[in-house]
Simulated assay, not measured.
Amino acid sequence: MTEQHAPPMPDDNELLAVPGDPDLAGGHRHFARPLFGVDVSVPDEVDRQETAALCLALGDDALVTALRLGEWLTGDLGPADTAALAGIGLDLVGQARMLLARSGQLDGTGRTEEELARGRAAEGFRNALLCEAPTEDLAFGAGRLLLLSLWRAVLFETLVDAADPVLAAVAAMGLRELAGHADLAARWVVRLGRGARTSHRRMGEAMSAVVSHLDELCEASPPCGLDPAAVRSELERRLAPVLSAAALTGPDESPAHRRAHPGGGRAGQHQYLEQMLTEARQEVPLHAAASR
């Protein structure tokens, strides 16, 4: 398989190196002046610390998921799937940049997105544990991408009306992107679920592992004005037709199948993130790789 190069960036800011396809950069509008026309001043009614925490968690989710997607690009995927996956990585990096930058503006530290991406230890990250879980195979990667995309869309549908104009703009832009992410992931899940016996079994096992993270996603999520039970109910409603089309059963609600998350990633307690960050920070920065 040919080597994947990192996508170009519009300026000299660096994020953790996430492999991508430079030919896709022109199709991702958020990399070019994404907040053009948006009033970036902070309204008086915005709770700065709460909104900063929300932006940080959502930005970390996007960045860490993009890192895992970058690892997936080295797998045995066809050209079309590789290009689509690289595009999703670009979308998520774009969301991470804007959300992390806004977090640094709101929390009073003035930290840039690059400083937040590269300057924190693992315990300073607030991503959900599902984002950092190793991509065991296509089935797990597809299931994770599906669940995270649907969950993020549920949140963003509320955040388009956020008091902070930057967060609202990122949510509106992200909704268009997440619809495409979920559609691609759903097609993979259905294809594998309706495949041969081994493929069907593995897709079922992967979805069981993925949905075991529902508690952390829905109950330990950053504050966004939504009732956790309502988020879970809506997420399961959107997930149900995909699982049905894939001939898979719905989430197992029994305690034995629910992953414990005391503290969890939202509290800075991670399982795989430290190694991920160490490896990513040794990679060539995005803009430097693009200039090669």
Results as ranks from 00 to 15, higher is better:
2 T>C: 07
2 T>S: 14
2 T>D: 13
4 Q>F: 04
6 A>P: 00
7 P>T: 07
10 P>C: 11
11 D>G: 14
11 D>S: 14
11 D>T: 13
12 D>S: 13
13 N>F: 05
18 V>C: 06
18 V>G: 02
19 P>A: 13
22 P>R: 08
23 D>K: 11
24 L>G: 15
25 A>D: 06
27 G>Q: 09
27 G>L: 05
31 F>G: 04
33 R>H: 09
33 R>P: 00
35 L>E: 03
35 L>Q: 03
36 F>P: 00
37 G>A: 06
37 G>P: 02
38 V>L: 01
38 V>A: 02
40 V>C: 10
41 S>T: 15
42 V>R: 03
45 E>M: 07
46 V>F: 13
47 D>F: 13
48 R>G: 02
51 T>V: 12
63 L>T: 03
66 A>F: 00
68 R>Y: 01
68 R>P: 01
69 L>I: 12
71 E>A: 08
72 W>P: 00
73 L>I: 13
74 T>C: 04
76 D>E: 15
79 P>S: 09
79 P>I: 06
83 A>W: 01
84 A>I: 05
84 A>M: 10
86 A>L: 06
88 I>T: 09
88 I>A: 10
92 L>G: 01
92 L>C: 01
99 L>D: 00
100 L>Y: 00
100 L>M: 05
103 S>P: 03
107 D>R: 06
113 E>M: 03
116 L>Y: 00
119 G>A: 10
120 R>D: 04
122 A>N: 06
124 G>R: 11
126 R>C: 12
127 N>M: 04
128 A>M: 10
128 A>N: 04
129 L>D: 11
132 E>V: 03
132 E>L: 04
132 E>W: 01
138 L>Q: 12
139 A>G: 04
141 G>V: 11
142 A>E: 07
144 R>A: 09
146 L>N: 08
149 S>Q: 10
150 L>C: 09
158 T>N: 09
160 V>I: 15
164 D>I: 06
165 P>W: 05
166 V>N: 04
166 V>F: 03
167 L>K: 05
169 A>S: 13
169 A>L: 08
172 A>G: 14
173 M>P: 00
175 L>H: 07
179 A>S: 14
180 G>D: 11
181 H>E: 14
185 A>W: 04
185 A>E: 06
187 R>S: 13
194 R>A: 08
196 A>D: 15
197 R>M: 12
197 R>C: 06
198 T>A: 15
199 S>V: 06
203 M>K: 05
204 G>S: 10
204 G>Q: 08
207 M>I: 10
207 M>C: 09
211 V>M: 12
216 E>Q: 12
216 E>W: 12
216 E>Y: 11
218 C>A: 08
218 C>S: 03
228 P>H: 08
229 A>G: 05
231 V>W: 00
233 S>V: 02
235 L>V: 11
237 R>Y: 04
245 A>F: 02
245 A>L: 10
246 A>P: 00
254 S>R: 15
256 A>M: 07
257 H>Q: 14
260 A>Y: 07
263 G>E: 03
265 G>N: 11
266 R>I: 12
266 R>C: 02
268 G>N: 07
271 Q>C: 08
272 Y>V: 02
273 L>A: 08
275 Q>M: 14
275 Q>A: 15
278 T>N: 09
278 T>H: 08
285 P>L: 13
286 L>S: 10
286 L>F: 09
290 A>M: 10
291 S>Y: 09
